[in-house]
Design a protein around this nucleic acid. Structure first.
Lengths: 333, 333
DNA sequence: TATAATAGCGGTACCGGTTCCAAAAAAATC
DNA sequence: GATTTTTTTGGAACCGGTACCGCTATTATA
């Protein structure tokens, strides 16, 4: 396997080989006054030995490091992956590393992850929150690390939030503009404050102004579950517009509709939230509220870096969104 | 922000507070002969101070750590995310941390990532390879870290491979069984040995036995590109079966077909590779060769852990796959 | 040329743990 | 009660870096 020269080379090795002291080598590495002659000597040796400093020793001494811990509930989510990608870009530029811990939506694992990062002494933590309990808040308080919570508002912490209420409000208005008055809302558990609660409230509030009160049904984040529910619901459905709380739910409805020979959007209009790529890949393309996930990632990354460097950061940053009208919605004729 | 007691507590603090020596505390922490009395004393203090050891100091001393570096070309890929999830599960159990570096498919960034991991002195590296150049191999050789390369065969290294050739062969046979003789293969660049080269070769070899020689067109991994290409191709297409090199490509073909009023599978059968969730969410559901991505993750994680512990690991591990017949393919009538 | 200023370098302490070894204390044996 | 054995404890070195401080060598200034 071609790994022979296993012995790791240290700064002492370099100094011995170059015939100078450790501190001189360190100065060479980190910048400081050094004569041309010794510079050349050391440079040669460093190159030959393929030396690279031990980051643990560095971190130990510096009492800080360039690790950012990220806690995500799942990795198979478009929004999360997009946000991660956005963060990753910033971190790559600013020379931070991203440590990702997946909790599989288990609150216990989230607590573990926080503990792990505490031990790891990461410079900062980004928390993709879903459902936050008191236990979480307690643990968060005991950490002495900068934290940004993404996607869920928690008092006393720095938050990056999607404007879910506004998103719901916009799509509610849009549905009304199209002339729909008989509307169904397909949502998820209200325990999820952002997706479950705020989006729904936005929709209902917008429609209430016109005295429209949507039917409400609850499903999960899984396309499959929305599909099954729709197979039951659609045959005796009276609504002309189904507002789905996520694009994946809309996808499930679309599939059920096709199998039931219900034409979208001629018979029913549907829309989602998120702006996932898949909304463009299906027929008809799905109207959605597009969130700037990547941008959220950028903002989050920059904020956590600022916090790490003890700079000021706004307590709440809102990420905008906008309705993307596609082919799954149409005027009520 | 409720962070007051910033001062990190060290093992020396504990020892002072408990009135014992550092080494006694360390022994308490790591298991060793300690009297009941001192155990109780130390336990109390550790609890009160909420002490947790500095992992950099530990790693520095132990000359090893529990970080596994992973280099991925992108994060918005079903297969990669699934494999990551599989790895993650194993690592969580075995107390390793996953450090993910996204290279955005840039070979340069891959080299950087390897350097970074070298500095970080990770215990092991998992490399999601796409296109490996000599430069990569050179750098790989200079690293003194266990490495597993996933998805691409590289001599002298440990590989976890998808049986792409076999997958192609199977779908070739399947298409022939259905009675198709006029077949198109929609592939990607052959520079990608696995997806571009092996899958195609499997298909062509299987069909050659029956003297069938598919048409070949090349597209990218993007659904959009496959869609555009299909819009041009399909109107004067003579094939009865289009074999797509990935599920996303199949998705693009399906969309184009719908818009051109070509019925799938009545007019043309199509199939993909991968077994992505989305193949079930569209209508018709798409026949595909399902890869055990999660399992690949498990296997990879276990192998790298074994390597880290200097245990034996097979040089090449193959991950199986199977044809999942759904509604996008049918007998030639 | 004498003196001051500065550049270049080495010695050493320190970061926060682990581990070896020897000393001290407790328990067991005679 | 003295001696041996075993258990418990503390001291010190070490991991691989960084940084302060002071000494020497060089250059600039008077």
């Amino acid at each position: 396997m071609s790994n022979d020269n296993k012995e790791l080379v240290t700064i002492s090795d370099i100094s011995r080989l170059a015939g100078v002291s450790k501190s001189t080598v360190s100065r060479y590495l980190n910048g400081g006054s050094i004569s041309k002659k010794t510079t050349d000597k050391i440079k040669k040796i460093v190159h030959e030995t393929n030396y690279s400093p031990n980051s643990f020793a560095q971190s130990l001494k510096a009492k800080k490091n360039n690790l950012i811990g990220t806690i995500v509930p799942r990795l198979d989510s478009y929004s999360i992956v997009q946000s991660l990608a956005g963060m990753d870009q910033e971190f790559a530029e600013k020379k931070y590393e991203l440590l990702i811990l997946n909790t599989y939506q288990s609150p216990e694992r989230e607590l573990e992850a926080l503990q792990t990062f505490k031990k790891q002494k990461v410079a900062g933590i980004v928390f993709f929150a879903t459902i936050l309990k008191d236990e979480h808040i307690q643990l968060l308080k005991s950490l002495d690390v900068p934290i940004i919570i993404l996607g869920q508002e928690v008092e006393d912490y720095h938050n990056v939030l999607y404007s879910d209420y506004e998103a719901g409000y916009k799509i509610g208005q849009y549905a009304h503009q199209l002339g729909h008055r008989s509307i169904t809302y397909l949502g998820v558990t209200e325990a999820d404050r952002s997706v479950g609660h705020s989006r729904k409230k936005g929709v209902f509030d917008a429609l209430q102004l016109f005295d429209i009160h949507p039917d409400y049904y609850e499903t999960t984040f899984q396309t499959k579950d929305a599909y099954k529910l729709s197979l039951k619901l659609l045959p005796h459905n009276e609504s002309t517009y189904i507002i789905c709380a996520t694009d994946n739910i809309a996808l499930g409805v679309l599939k059920a509709a096709r199998e039931l020979n219900i034409e979208i959007p001629q018979d029913i209009s549907i829309s989602g939230f998120g702006g996932y790529d898949i909304t463009d890949a299906v027929t008809p393309t799905i109207t959605t509220v597009k969130y700037a996930y990547q941008k959220a990632g950028h903002v989050t990354a920059n904020s956590i870096i600022r916090l790490v460097n003890k700079e000021e950061v706004a307590n709440v940053t809102l990420i905008e969104n906008h309705v993307e009208i596609k082919n799954s919605t149409t005027f009520l004729i």
